[in-house]
Write a protein that binds this DNA or RNA. Sequence first.
DNA 1: TGCCAGGCCGAAA
DNA 2: TTTCGGCATGGC
Length: 271
Amino acid sequence: MQIPCENHTAELRLKEPVSLYHTFFCGQCFRWRPDGDGFFGVAWGRAARVWSVDGVLHVTGSGADSGDLWRRYFDLDRAYADIYTPWLNDPFMSRAVAHGEGLRILAQQPWESLCSFLLSQCCNIPRIRAMVDCLCRRFGEPISFQGLMEYAFPTPERLAGIKEEELVCIRAGYRAKYILAAARAVASGSLDLDRLQSEETEKAREELMRVEGVGRKVADCALLYGLGKLDAFPVDTWMKKARAYHPAYEGEYAGIAQQYIFYYARETGLR
DNA sequence: TGCCAGGCCGAAA
DNA sequence: TTTCGGCATGGC
């Protein structure tokens, strides 16, 4: 089935500066690419082109939408400056925030975030992007948009019905069985991602970690990027290397702090 | 060619 | 509770 080719546009006024580049390339998502003066990608089953001019975020996308989807996706109703200002008294956090100025924590589809970060295990970001792209092309619904054929992220129901051998094409190695275990858990209803959005972070993390291949790191990535739990704090090798302690590392918006730290630490080769 | 990558799992210490 | 090897593969 091909998703109907109905397009929409949205103009979203920004209350503070937003960097699409930092947002898309800080390591939280894998489906956006530079495209002229803007970016092209797929989110929530829509292919879209986004760009920013004079404090307005412009979106043209496939499918119907009033703009609310993108307002939520880019978390535009939250004042990030109010959140990070108290962190700036710490020199390391100050540099990290300056490095990633304008990044937003994207509200991604819960299943997509869980599945993507299951694939992320022990891979660098270019490889994760390649695997996710391959997975979508092979198993996602096609989306015709602006003369291009894009693909939605495959549903858990779709992936639950395939055999592990069919995933060989994405070269996921030992991660393939994790993808299938998670897809089957979601498709069967034993893992209800929608319900977890209204659970406490700790309870939701506990349920996610019952799935094979979901450890603390993958669970926290799914919590932060897919379930809107901004207090989730994925700790990986880069975070361990940072080692420093700061109040921003915990609390209601720890996940936002984590994103600045991760992006800064990775790009500056912190060791 | 070798090291490392947004880790997890299970066994051993 | 912590440590460590194995896992599967590709980017650099």
